[in-house]
């Protein structure tokens, strides 16, 4: 699902348009007009990205035409691999969203509990060990960073 050179090429093309559009919003500086002004470099760069993304699209189109049969076989094995990645992504997003309201300690505990538990899958023989490891990981990181290294960490609504 995540493997598609054509889709990546389109994303890069969109990025180039976005970069070009953004450059037109930059105010021209009075003392560095023209070629040395703040707009030209981003504009040239966006044109370069657009050119390369079109090349990539063309290259992928020609390649796909050649190897049409192999694509569907590869897709199945890739999807299985990607399940864990999507899970990790969702867990990471949840971790960031919950960090401010719940605080570092609770959100970290929940994050490690979910990720260790689910990534471990059948390798975990004792379910309680996941809770124990998550608790130890949370306490050690909290003590190390907040107490020893004096890093400010969100305390959340419970503190």
């Amino acid at each position: 699902m995540l493997k598609s050179n054509k889709a990546v090429a389109i994303c890069f093309f969109v990025l180039s348009i976005f970069t070009y559009y953004g450059s037109t919003l930059i105010p021209e500086a009075i003392y560095s007009e023209g070629a040395a002004g703040p707009r030209l470099f981003p504009q040239l760069w966006s044109i370069f990205i657009a050119f390369l993304s079109i090349m990539l699209y063309g290259q992928s189109y020609l390649k796909e035409k050649k190897n049409k049969d192999d694509a569907s076989k590869k897709e199945k094995s890739t999807r299985r691999e990607e399940k864990n990645v999507f899970f990790m992504l969702i867990a990471a997003i949840g971790y960031i969203v919950l960090m401010k309201p719940l605080g570092f300690v609770i959100s970290t505990f929940l994050f490690s509990l979910a990720t260790i538990g689910l990534l471990g899958g059948e390798n975990i023989k004792n379910k309680y060990s996941v809770v124990l490891i998550s608790a130890i990981a949370t306490i050690v990181t909290y003590v190390l960073f907040a107490q020893v290294l004096d890093v400010f960490l969100p305390t959340g609504i419970f503190m």
Binding site: M88, F111, T115, I116, L119, G120, G121, A137, T141
Partner: peptide, 9 residues
């Protein structure tokens, strides 16, 4: 499965 979440944290 233990190492990766810790690296993430």
């Amino acid at each position: 499965h233990i190492l990766l979440p810790i690296v993430g944290i």
